[in-house]
Design a protein around this nucleic acid. Structure first.
Lengths: 107, 107
DNA sequence: CCAAATCATAACTCTCCGGTTATAGATATT
DNA sequence: AATATCTATAACCGGAGAGTTATGATTTGG
């Protein structure tokens, strides 16, 4: 079966796709055309990547006339943060590694 | 080119490989044989996954006689935490999503 | 009403990767 | 020394997926 965590990690695995998500986070809502302009791949490729990000819950789309606006949906990053935290927590004996990780997370 | 972040995300993308890493985090150092026993795939497959995790900096190996012990290396999770945090930070305007994520991260 | 524009889907190709079996290399055992 | 054990590597196979071009669906504009 295909769990939601699998979907999330797999969505972020591809560099092109991750770059699209990062750009949406930095610059906010964008149309497919705007994203395609500097993505380095064709428009259909961008559309497929966006569909994958949407399936993982990482972006949301909004239709306005003939163009589609995509925006980031950072709530989906919650499980990723949880997972990282959980993995680090098993390391409580190793204060060096744990402290380093916690110092990064607490602001 | 293949950046270190790419390596990290790709290493965690495969469910079998992620399960191996999770198990190392939960149970601590393990030999290849012990990991293979319950991995659900063949020993060579396990070895290849461990090699990928090692390339991503997620595990370290220690040779002892004819067996190899693998242990988690949570320092590698730092960049993942940084990335998540950075992506969330661009959303400071959206306090709902940001607060939710921060509440997960601060313990 | 016709043409241009915007995006998604279809169909296809090609590379990569996760799996296998077989085997080599190294170490332990008897 | 011979054999058994443990892991890594080699060689191969099949499927998934990331890319392409072509086209369909929808909407805007003249």
């Amino acid at each position: 079966m295909e769990t939601q965590t699998d979907l999330l990690f797999r969505a972020l695995a591809d560099p092109t796709r991750r770059a699209l998500f990062e750009r949406l986070c930095r610059e906010g809502e964008q149309t497919v055309g705007a994203l395609t302009a500097t993505a380095g791949v064709s428009q259909p490729a961008v559309s497929k990547h966006l569909a994958a990000l949407k399936a993982a819950g990482l972006v949301a789309d909004r239709h306005e006339g003939r163009q589609t606006h995509y925006s980031p949906h950072t709530a989906a990053l919650g499980p990723l943060a949880d997972w990282t935290k959980e993995m680090a927590r098993f390391w409580e004996g190793r204060f060096d590694a744990l402290e380093d990780l916690l110092s990064r997370m607490d602001q």
